[in-house]
Design a protein around this nucleic acid. Structure first.
Lengths: 123, 123
DNA sequence: TGAATATATGAATATATGATCATATATATC
DNA sequence: GATATATATGATCATATATTCATATATTCA
């Protein structure tokens, strides 16, 4: 019942990471700290109302900055700043279209993640 | 953000459903602002290194606060604070076990979300 | 070329947030 | 009850972050 010194499980398998190496420290710690930090950074991008709204809009149709700005009724600069974060996270792509720049989701994986989030909060 | 000065929308039910009611405003806007904000709040919980590490540890075995504190080599208070956030988000449950309090994931859905995140960042 | 439109970006600012410290609460053991 | 152990919590502080403003860059069209 007391787990003060439970068995040290070597952990390194189930994270699904491809190339995780063994923990450097002799004492047991979490298996792949770097991957987990990366994972939290990934989720953090979804953790902002403006960004999730943008992602949701883009999951339905490609849109230029002006459209997003109008739909969300927000400052254009704020949208551009958030789009930059989404670009850096490789969640969206863009292409120039005349004066406008058209944004789209980078892949369908993003949709899946959003949908799975919805499934959880709606259950 | 959320500077929408209009009244909160009815937040009827599932956003994901296509049954979204007509937008109140004549101009097209996002279908269900409240749900999207809730969704961002949900993802934000995953968007912190400490919390994602805790969730990962709990995905492998139930643990008491002391264990988590030792495994992550962090301040006990910091762990408790983060556990509180995880409780509030209904991502973890707890039960008292003598002096200790044992935490576990609330459901397997959490695992799925973490795994899907890993799939994305590892691709 | 110059005006108009669309988008990006740096600086400034207000707010959110995570860790720490000190301490409170709860349980077990003596 | 007294003490030790385990966990929770409020206050504080340093940092991160989202928005806004001003302005720069890029494109189209007259």
């Amino acid at each position: 019942m007391n787990r003060t010194h439970h068995s040290p499980d070597t952990a390194a398998g189930s994270v699904q990471g491809k190339k995780q190496r063994d923990a450097k420290k002799s004492k047991e710690s979490i298996p792949d700290e770097t991957s987990l930090v990366t994972l939290s950074e990934f989720f953090r991008v979804f953790g902002d109302p403006t960004r999730i709204k943008i992602l949701y809009l883009l999951s339905r149709s490609d849109l230029c900055v002006h459209d997003i700005t109008a739909l969300l009724e927000m400052n254009q600069s704020a949208i551009s700043h958030q789009l930059r974060i989404l670009k850096q996270a490789r969640l969206v792509r863009y292409r120039r279209n005349g004066r406008s720049i058209c944004y789209s989701l980078d892949d369908d994986h993003v949709k899946q993640i959003i949908n799975q989030g919805f499934e959880h909060i709606n259950e």
